[in-house]
Structures are given as C-alpha cells and as structure tokens.
Amino acid sequence: MLISIVLGILIFAYATWMVISFIKKSRQGRCAACALKDSCDSGCSAVSFEERQQILSSTTHHTK
C-alpha cells in the first residue's frame, strides 16, 4: 500500500509539473517550446525575447 502511495504521488506530481511547464513554455513561444531548440539555427539563442524586443525598439530612440 505504501509503495502504491509513493508511486502514485511520484507519477501524478511529475505529470502535473511537466504539463504545467510545457504549457508555460509554449505560451512563451519562441524556441523554449520547440523540439529542435538546441539544434536549430533559425532563431534560437541565449538572448531572451524581451531583450530582443528591447534591442529592436531602441533603434528609434537611439542616443549613442
């Protein structure tokens, strides 16, 4: 019985965690959710999406 409870908790906790983190990652879009994220060359980078947006938007109010 004890073993059933331990297994049950492990399975359901892991499953919940995985589903939640997947949906979170997917909603972030970009590469975080992609199956090819470590391999593909078409856009994945260590630069976060927010950082990129910042860079792109800063062209218009450039001061340097």
């Binding site: 359901f12 995985m18 997947f22 994220k37």
Partner: peptide, 21 residues
C-alpha cells in the same frame, strides 16, 4: 542527434504528463 533528441525528451516529459492526464 540534436534534432532527434528533442523528440525523445518530449516523450519523457510532456507526453508523459499529458498521457497521465
């Protein structure tokens, strides 16, 4: 391997969770 391992990893993580639900 780099492209394919994503498939395997996804099976162990999200597919696992989704399947349980």
């Amino acid at each position: 391997w780099d492209k394919g391992k994503g498939f395997v990893r996804k099976a162990g993580t999200f597919i696992f969770g989704g399947t349980v639900f």
